[in-house]
Design a binder for these strands. Structure first.
Length: 485
RNA sequence: GGCCACGUGGCGGAGUGGUUACGCAACGGUCUGCAAAACCGUGUACCCCGGUUCAAUUCCGGGCGUGGCCUCCA
């Protein structure tokens, strides 16, 4: 099976050939840990998890290295720490914020069905590597010291801008960058900068006396080097990172190591909007993964994300989630009756994904298995896709949307009381007493039906209907009830 | 202003130089005491204008629209 991937650098889809099949190497830009991750952050995490699973399948789980960094040094972190813990020393406050956020991030992405990367390096643990790179760049004439900063000289790299497809002239023309007097070129970017008093700081490289801290881009060059080498196979992230972040990573790494490439395949997921609008705190439509997990199970969120090809823009809507939830619930109910696994289901998914992660096509194939009642294949395919069907993966933490079967009083073995948020937003809660009453009425109706007293049976149906309960008479003679949508 | 994407049926969303994507919703039917569920079936879409071609939704050019980047941002 040939894997084909789209490479942003060349703007084309082409066969994937790893540098070393015994060690396939992928680096993805991870979170800056200062706040809950939002649903837009979830996109690359999910997309590259799918790629990770695919690579593990094709090359062997032990032969794939997936590095996703954790950025724990950043102005936003400092600001958040000072705000939340004004009475603590800044560095201690920072540690509290970053540890808490990191834990939260892991909980969130675990719930989304994502495997942990092979390595999750922290920026603050790679200061030494960053300084080594910086000193190399200065020594080679690609960077210079100015007013306790170290800056990368973009003019020293002939094809700077190739990833973003824009020339230095174009960029300088529309320059809205900070005009720092010590920059040789307006596009030069910071590798190292002095720390203010109280801020995290480390001894500076390149003979700078004042303590300082790294610029934003250098950490990824340092960590990918440390854990994957001077060049590696795949580098991923969101499209918004193409410029300047990835462009600058390329500049740093290639000029440090004198290599023609940093990574052979650059992959970027598309942007996400919420209900047709850009997600922003000012618009009040900022959606965190954590909040979404209250309303929808991780599998629903994951499925909803993968319904759209990773390079396409995606509009994240409640209507779409509702549709996804309905479809996944049906599959989950079907699979419960069939615990066997047919690996041909997995192979069909692998085949679809091998074409530049064509997840919509993979889902189309899963739908085919469902339609043909090939639940063993469906089960295998979903498993490969990372979609699990436990109650907690299907339902949100707060809302219970599946029906219970009377008499069993369970959803897949878990005792549960129902709380349903209906389509119109109203809430129906089923407690022990109302459940008992419902079941009494159901029994009474079935007795009436048995006696062919259909007027009475219909009257009871209406009575339950008024309580927002709908009945379904199953083929096997049982009656199921559920809360009206 | 510069650069980069995207624009498919009511909605979501693949794909293709000429043949039904698929799913949701809708409608029709089967089944059912009723109803629901389930199952079967129906729908002929590809922003606009040019060009290339025997043939374009699919390639090329232009326009319009939306979004992203150029400043922290997945």
């Amino acid at each position: 099976m040939e894997l084909r991937l789209y490479d942003t650098l060349r703007r084309e889809k082409r066969p994937f050939t790893p540098l070393d099949p015994a060690r396939v190497r992928m680096y993805v830009c991870g979170p800056t840990v200062y706040d809950f991750a939002h649903i837009g952050n979830a996109r690359p995490v999910i997309v590259f998890d799918v790629l990770f699973r695919l690579l593990r399948h094709l090359y062997g789980a032990a032969n794939v290295a997936y590095v996703r960094n954790i950025t724990d040094v950043d102005d936003k972190i400092n600001a958040r720490a000072a705000e939340e813990h004004p009475n603590l020393p800044l560095n201690e406050a920072i540690r509290i914020v970053t540890e808490k956020t990191e834990r939260q991030f892991h909980e969130d992405v675990d719930a989304l069905g994502c495997l942990r990367p092979t390595v999750e390096p922290r920026a603050t643990e790679h200061i030494a590597e960053m300084k080594t790179l910086i000193e190399r760049l200065v020594a080679a004439g690609h960077a210079y010291v100015a007013e306790d900063h170290v800056l990368f000289a973009v003019a020293s790299m002939p094809d700077y801008g190739r990833l973003a497809k824009r020339s230095l002239d174009e960029m300088t023309a529309g320059a809205r960058v900070e005009v720092a007097p010590y920059k040789r070129d307006p596009m030069d970017f910071v590798l190292w900068k002095p720390s203010k008093l109280g801020e995290p700081s480390w001894p500076s490289p390149s003979g700078i006396a004042a303590p300082g801290r790294p610029g934003w881009h250098i950490e990824c060059s340092a960590m990918s080097w440390k854990h994957l080498g001077e060049t590696f196979d795949i580098h991923g992230g969101g499209v918004d990172l193409v410029f300047p972040h990835h462009e600058n990573e390329i500049a740093q790494s290639r000029c440090s190591f004198k290599t023609p490439v940093m990574a052979n395949y650059w992959m970027h997921n598309g942007f996400l909007q919420v209900e047709g609008e850009k997600m922003s705190k000012s618009l009040g439509n900022f959606v965190t993964i954590n909040e979404e997990l209250d309303s929808w199970g991780g599998s629903v969120l994951r499925f909803n994300m993968l319904k759209t090809h990773y390079r396409q823009p995606i509009d994240w809507t409640q209507a779409g989630l509702k549709e996804s939830g309905r479809e996944i619930s049906r599959w989950a109910e079907a699979i419960q009756h069939d615990l066997e696994v047919d690996e041909s289901g997995r192979d069909a998914i692998v085949e679809a994904l091998a074409d530049d992660l064509n997840t919509p096509e993979a889902i189309t194939r899963l739908r085919g298995f469902y339609r043909n009642r090939d639940f063993a294949a469906l089960s295998a395919g979903m498993r490969f896709f990372g979609i699990s069907i436990g109650v907690e993966s299907i339902q949100g933490r707060k809302h219970k949307r599946l029906y219970v079967e009377p008499g069993q009083y369970t959803i897949t073995g878990q005792p549960v009381l129902l709380k349903v948020i209906r389509d119109d937003g109203s809430v129906v809660e089923i407690d022990k007493d109302s459940k008992q009453k419902i079941e009494q009425l159901v029994d009474a109706r079935n007795a009436a039906r048995k006696a062919k007293n259909f007027n009475e049976a219909d009257r009871i149906r209406d009575e339950l209907h008024a309580m927002d309960i709908e009945l379904e008479d199953n083929k096997d003679g049982t009656t199921t009830w559920k809360v009206k949508r």
